[in-house]
Amino acid sequence: MNGRTLILNAYVYAVLVFILVPILIILPMAFSETEYLVFPPKGFTFDWFGRFFSDRLWMQALQFSFQIAVATAIASTVIGTMASYALVRGAGALGSLFQALLIGPIVVPHVALAVALYLFFERVGLSGTLAGYIIAHTVLALPFVVFTVSAALLSVDPALEDAAMSCGATRFQAFRLVTLPLILPNVVSAALFGFIISFDEPVVTFFLAGIRDKTLPRMMFDDIEQNLTPIIPAIAVLLTGISVLILIGAAALRKAAENRTMPRFDEMK
């Protein structure tokens, strides 16, 4: 390793420390006995987990956010997969419009969308409702779902569907029996994306939230703004645990997928 490479490596690992430290130091603070967040944490207690699970408001928020996230994951995956399929199978002019609109939710600031949706939902009576949050979060999640699913669709040889149809399958059967199983790992990741985007979405929920129906991110926002208690790291520990489980599940899925998908050109020597 020459000097140049050494410097590059050192710099990059410093950057990685910068990235990891805030994510990692938060976790031990969940066990702090203090009423406010300090690092290093003082003492050791599971109190904050207890408080989180016994507090009616936090539990309501958790349940509410979970409902929204599950519905968002399903809605965005179904809508996104349908559209991706049409896009990849030649949507023509409609496809160009689709792609242009798709980047909208990514580049338009969430604040702008949040305010616009707040106004719109107030008028149509959706503000603070489950449906309102689901609609808003589905809009935010769609681009990521479409990207994930269409990437997988593009890697599936369209001739496979032709082959299925020549075997007597209808277009829908060809999709369900051949294409869908092949893109399933990505469809599942897309749904996960949808779930996480919704579950962790602070801005739109901040503006849409009513007094009573608060989402988990909204409760966390208020806590950080007002008290900064160790309940935040306690939640972080729980979320990290769930994330780790999901990552392990995803890895297993990937492994299963590797056994299925055939690299088309590897075989051709």
Partner: peptide, 30 residues
Amino acid sequence: LPPHKRNIGMVFQHYTLFPHLSVLDNVAFP
């Protein structure tokens, strides 16, 4: 007539076997 109603056998250029199905399931697909 759509392809699936023509009762034709077809062999494609790049094999196009369904990669997620076993050889027997591929052949049994039609």
